[in-house]
């Protein structure tokens, strides 16, 4: 029993990482319908931002906390530049967007190699995140590292902040209005192009925040984005396009499934099982866990 509980906790912490990397994508892909293959590199930019800050500030704790807003700004700015220069011209052309942003993703990877070198780098974890808490003792102790708990807290905070922004602020109303009925929004006096830009800034910025979190659980490298972008897309697709709630459920469900299967088999087999489960789920429910009407991808 404690094994199950322990693996579930592991699953929840995997889910928290998935949720963080998918949250930004649920805005840009889920709400706006933009297939941005460079989203993973925005995550990478957040991770490298943490690394650079730590090189300049010796205190790991301060640099980590400062990295959160800094990474949001860096990744968000990259997002705005991409939206203004390329994506804006390709709305309603998803395949072209996919190819173009894939190219941008390769460019950004090479840029990272040129600046930071090809080998992975590492940040040091601040002291207050190195410990573990033990939930159940005994034969199979259930422990959770402070770093994982921090990521979980960060994911929950990001979801809450995003939900409140979308629900309660004028900007959130404008974002939802443009997603639901672009032409009527324009005809109601809303500068829809500016709303697109802002939405893209927030979605990309959240990728940067995810990048900060990933420095706590793995190395930082030029291809780190490529390795996780597929997972992020899977979470958004399974969750249902355009709904945050769906993405939250999907992230934790996939995380727990991965952890449970992983325990009795191997990591690779668990990945395969999760993919098969996703394919089966989408056969049964192609629209995902929950959906709203969004701008058509066609």
């Amino acid at each position: 029993m404690t094994v199950l509980i322990g693996q579930s906790f592991t699953g929840i912490s995997i889910g928290a990482v998935l949720l963080l990397i998918a949250l930004g994508l649920s805005l840009t892909f889920g709400q706006m319908g933009v297939i941005n293959m460079a989203h993973g590199e925005f995550i990478m930019s957040g991770a490298y931002t943490t690394y650079v800050l730590q090189q300049h500030l010796t205190d790991a704790g301060t640099s980590l906390l400062l990295a959160l807003p800094a990474a949001f700004a860096v990744a968000g700015t990259l997002g705005i530049v991409l939206e203004r220069t390329l994506i804006r011209r390709l709305y309603t052309r998803p395949l072209d967007t996919l190819l173009v942003t894939w190219g941008v993703s390769l460019l950004l990877q090479q840029l990272a190699r040129d600046i930071f070198g090809a080998p992975n780098v590492q940040t040091s974890t601040p002291g207050w995140l190195t410990g573990r808490i033990t939930l159940f003792g005994g034969e199979h102790p259930v422990t959770l590292s402070h770093a994982r708990l921090f990521i979980l807290t960060l994911a929950v905070a990001a979801v809450v902040a995003l939900t409140l922004t979308l629900r309660l602020t004028p900007l959130g109303r404008r974002i939802r209005a443009v997603v639901q009925h672009r032409e009527l929004a324009e005809a109601s006096g809303i500068a829809t192009a500016r709303v697109d830009r802002t939405t893209f800034f927030i979605g990309s910025g959240l990728a940067g925040v995810a990048g900060v979190a990933l420095t706590l659980v793995g190395p930082i490298g030029p291809t780190m984005g490529t390795n996780i972008i597929i997972d992020a897309f899977l979470v958004v697709v399974v969750g249902g396009i355009g709904r945050l709630r769906g993405a939250v459920v999907a992230a934790f469900a996939l995380g727990v499934l991965q952890a449970l299967v992983e325990y009795s088999t191997t990591v690779s087999l668990a990945k395969v099982t999760v993919l098969i489960a996703i394919v089966a789920f989408l056969q049964w429910r192609p629209q995902g866990i929950s959906t709203v009407r969004t701008r058509s991808l066609a």
């Binding site: 109303r173 939802r176 209005a177 639901q180 009925h181 009527l184 929004a185 005809a187 009407r293």
Partner: peptide
């Protein structure tokens, strides 16, 4: 516009 248009989810 024609057809009683609104933002349906708002």
């Amino acid at each position: 516009p024609q057809g009683q248009q609104s933002f349906p989810q708002l």
